[in-house]
Amino acid sequence: MTDVPLPYRVIRVNRETADTVTLVLAPTGPATLAPFAPGQFAMVYAFGVGEIPVSVSRIDRHALRHTIRSVGAVSAALCALRPGSRVGLRGPFGTGWELDRAAGQDLLVVAGGIGLAPLRPLVLDALAARHRYGQLNLLVGARSPGDLLYAQQLRFWTAHRGLRHCAVTVDRSADGWWGHVGLVTTLLNHAEFAPDSTTAYLCGPEVMIRATARDLVHRGLPAQRIRVSLERNMRCATGHCGHCQLGGVLLCRDGPVIGWDRADPLLSVREL
């Protein structure tokens, strides 16, 4: 289903932060979208309001999860939905993280804000097959302690799922916060990875991606083994509307996940 949205039912709404919810979605009938890979996205339609691209934040056999921050008309409408509400879904679209290609290597997952959402299915896959990879590092940045996504799950992964290297930092501290304060790049010194055999996965605000990727290149990671998920305006997701261009890249088709070797020269040009 890539042309016309397929109705899905909201079976649960998890409030993540003050402005962010996770919608747990299941098909309303026998028809279902093709399976999503971590990193891919769906076009999510709020009835009568519009459609936005949202990466999957968890993939179960019977349900898809989308974690959505209320920033515009469509995302606000989606965040206001309740269990039983319907949405339309098209997808799956775009490229995935392609974790398989990193077998035997250390993994470095760096998330900023809502950017943790598209990375969650990647982390879950890596945790489910720990023996296939070296060190698994998860570095997370949030604006404030209250804006931290999946806080409980991060603690669970650390305590019970063998996630040994998980660090969190916030831009602005608050009462009761005893953790790191500062940019997510400051956490790189706390991570354990061998730059010559590591694959990094980055998602977050563009400034955070740029700063982190450049830092990693400086530490000796080859650019093509830094995978970043980027964002542009999208209307169709099928490569026909022209909105998601970033130079020669059509992000809905060639992205959203692309290698830093391709992204770096494009993001270095202002307003490209």
Binding site: V4, F47, G88
Partner: peptide, 13 residues
């Protein structure tokens, strides 16, 4: 395409 919402909240597109 067009979408219609039924009285039971169902959605058909």
């Amino acid at each position: 395409w067009s979408a219609d919402r039924g009285s039971d909240g169902s959605l058909s597109i």
